[in-house]
Design a protein around this nucleic acid. Sequence first.
RNA 1: GGGCUAUUGGCGCAGUUGGCUAGCGCACCAGUAUGACACACUGGGGGUCACAGGUUCGAGUCCUGUAUAGCCCACCA
Length: 1042
Amino acid sequence: MPTDAAKEPMSKSYAPSDHESRIWDKWMASGAFHADPSRVLSSEAQPYTILIPPPNVTAALHLGHALNNSIQDILIRAHRMKGYETLWMPGTDHAGIATQTMVDKKLKEAGKPGIADYKKMELEGKPGREEFLKLVHDFKDEYEARITDQLQKMGCSCDWDRQRFTMDDICARAVREAFFQLFKDGLIYRGKRLVNWDPVTQTALADDEVEMEDVEGFFWYMKYPVVDASGNETGEFVTVATTRPETFLGDTGVAVNPDDPKHKKFIGQRVKLPFVNRIIPIIGDDYVVMADPNSSDSKAQYASGFLKVTPAHDPNDWMIGQRHDLEVINIMAPDASISDTHGWEDVGDAQQFVGLSREDARIAIEKAFDDAGLLEAKKPYSHAVGHSYRSHAAIEPYLSDQWYCKVSDDKLRGNAQRAVRPDQRTEKSIKDWPESRPKMVAENSTDGSMSFFPARYTKTYETWHDNLRDWCISRQLWWGHRIPVWHKRYDLTTDEALDLCASEVDEVMETYWPDQFCIVKNAETGADISLKELFIPTGKNSTQILREGVVDVYICDIRENASCWENDGFKQDPDVLDTWFSSALWPLSTMGWPDAAAAKDSSGIEDFESMLSAFNPTSLLTTAREIITLWVSRMAMFNRYFLGENEQPGKAPFKDVFIHAMIQDGEGRKMSKSLGNGVDPLDIIHSHGADAMRFTLCQMTTQTQDVRMPVEHDKSTGKNTSPKFDLGRNLCNKLWNAAKFSMMMLEKNPIEPGMPIDPQELTLIDRWMLSRVVDATNKINTAQRSYMFKDYADTIYDLFWRDFCDWYLESIKPTIADNPNQRAVLRLVFEAIIRLMHPVMPFITETLSERFADIPMREITGFNFAQTRTNETLCQSGWPEPIDELRDEVAEDAYERVRSLVSTIREIRAQSQVAPKRKIVLHATGSLADDITRWSPLVETLAGVESITADSPDGQAASFTFEGAEYQLSNLADALDEGAEKDRLEKELATIEKSIKGIEGRLANPGYTDKAPAHLVQQTRDQLAGLEKDRDATKSALEKLG
RNA sequence: GGGCUAUUGGCGCAGUUGGCUAGCGCACCAGUAUGACACACUGGGGGUCACAGGUUCGAGUCCUGUAUAGCCCACCA
């Protein structure tokens, strides 16, 4: 039913804001975006599914999001029209550290208490955590609403009834279940490791949350005295080179390369750490780079040959320490100040440094060494240092207890690797895989269903997995999924504790399984203790302790009432999970895993229980390339792990992964807040319209990794924009006007109902136009399948603007009123064009569809549309599926000749400065006179020709050649400028002769005629013959001029 | 340090297995109120395809090297 708005006369130009919100409401009311899993399960329709990469709730969407989501919507809409049951699952991500930091910052800016104040409250026993999280929730609600609004303004046809948030109840249930299963299977463990510690936000960061920045620093050369067996200085010194002198307090060894001819003699000796007076060994380790001032390796240039080893404060040193069983001494507090209360006891004479920040300690230590004559040198040195991507503070490698996910296990990493389609793998055969890469279960397994587009990104995915280390999943934050583990330390020598512990474990083992799982660790060594080693059942409900000592008991419990452990003195782990842990579960949690019934209850969505089987695996994931490791890989691991059955891994969560380009500004820089070069999608929607933005973004999306968008600052609005979007705006306006014109034609002379029209009965121009639609449809289908978005945009642009507007509409002007079949063609072709355009430009096409709703369509045999649920709105209508027989080569060739003749005549008109309105006469006396006469209506209309005659001109005339013959045009002007005519023909002749020369040269080369394919050589010969005819005709025309 | 991408008229980009005179949009020049569109129409000018070698009958396209720009990854002596 057309609305009133659709009845109003069409405006002179297209104004997006007059239509977009009305169309959006219409779509929402129609339920067009709601996916019905039952149609998939009953095989009525094939599924097509995309999960939105959930945007962080930290900020409004930027142009990169606009690009990514336009791409998704284009594919979703196209598949909906092709008859697929489409699901585009929307949602947002809680973005743990980013959101918490953002809220803290905003609170501080508003002069309100920040997280530090709430932490204080917590220490005072007040509910600081709870209060702070309320504020974060408010912030999240605000931004989630903003993001949703933005996506809807862009026209994103997500299934909005199913919108998820990574921390809502349904997702939280999935997170707890996943954590529990991994915990139970031994794939989550607690470990003391060096983590990337952000001393400002005081949390551990994942490797990928650390940004490397080049820093202008120094190399310090510090002298350590060598001591003899009894600890007395021998008078010799070794000089260690370091960029971090402050960590010397934690040195527990000095390493030398065992192949170092100059220094290897020191191996086995010992040195005394200045001030601390700790005696530490000199060890041999081939990690150490030997000093070589002439080396191209900057490390060798700066190295002294001696490497100080600080296992607690450097990842490399940690590994050296592990190899040589060195002591691990942590000398810092969590805020990165020097501390003697976090594991450092032998302070010795170094008390002066305790309490200093790491920066101040560096200065103090340099001075102390210098004063003591122990600083040999200090040289400037530029190197990369990790910084927190949030606080931008330098990362401190810091020893702490964290939860890890054992992603290096073959069940996770291996299955993620094997998910890649075999012919995309860089090593084609599994046998060729590097030693580090997990092996296939079997060459012929069902693995390998996931493809990357462009394929080169497979390599990124593979190499990342090759070098994968276990994933630190705990974060010392408040905003996130709380780790479902309760901890209590027991002294097993105390009877009371022993009884309690025994009863707890007993309960865990027998009563509550499988909702809880328990691990026990030796509190001193951190070693795991098997429950069976620890307790032995001695009868019903009683156990006997087998060992003594102090143990840490960790209970993982995912029941709703798990806080009951607190009554027994257990405490829940204060940490939350890395954001990517819940993101990794996105293909599962959004589909109701693990408990669809519960998801149904909490969401009220009836068909939740069919979702997983209908829509997982999904069809496509589109994302930015930096997310391949953070997200794509982890989703692959988790989907395969949790959906596996009977030792067989589940499927990859998506068939295709499309990595889109990154939008840079005109200078090739990343768009960012700090550079102020970002463009807000809403601003563009406001100034150009959503469709214009979408078309332009689609048109820019090539297979390269970066695309540039020149940014201009509009002083009148104070906003950034880009002239690139004019392209889309102009196209919308052109479409609007072409529609207005077509409608005028069709309303003046209505389409007559009747039997389907046989295409053979149509005129040349109509058959040509239908043929162009068929060709474009095929090209678009191919472009969509291969994610060539620019090809799609260019094809639709050319079909509509070049073929339909420039040639078809111009050609039919004189005949449409009298030709009912032509009106049927116009109506159908217009319909096909707006349907082909709709996925890219949904609002304007839906608007036009409303307006054309009253103009009936008469069928043309073979010009079909796909079957869909309904044709109620354009977005649900069927995709054009014309049969291949409508591709009419004869009509295409013939019309190509008409166009060529018209262009030639137009060129002469322009060059001879014929007044645009002047009607000229074409004298077709040559060999093609019959053809030209048959085309006369077209040629007359398009080239401004009054009449075509077989008579020779009796007055002045301009000659031209067409397809090797000579023709004349007369009545060009009241008095023809013969000199100008001569110039024109001479220029023409020169061009032809130049071409002939080139072709003759090629044919004279025996290498070409002998070795090039025969059809190519023949083609060249034909071309030469044609050019020779043109040359002769032009010459003859020139001769007539005298 | 490793990997990847780009370099084509003033600007932004196509050019998929090597094959007619290298295309498109914007901008530019000339003309135009023509049954919708000046956000338009018609015609035109402008490129030794970053550079140097090589393979080939033939290279923007393949190979090698160089330069420049950018991105991603990497345990900070």
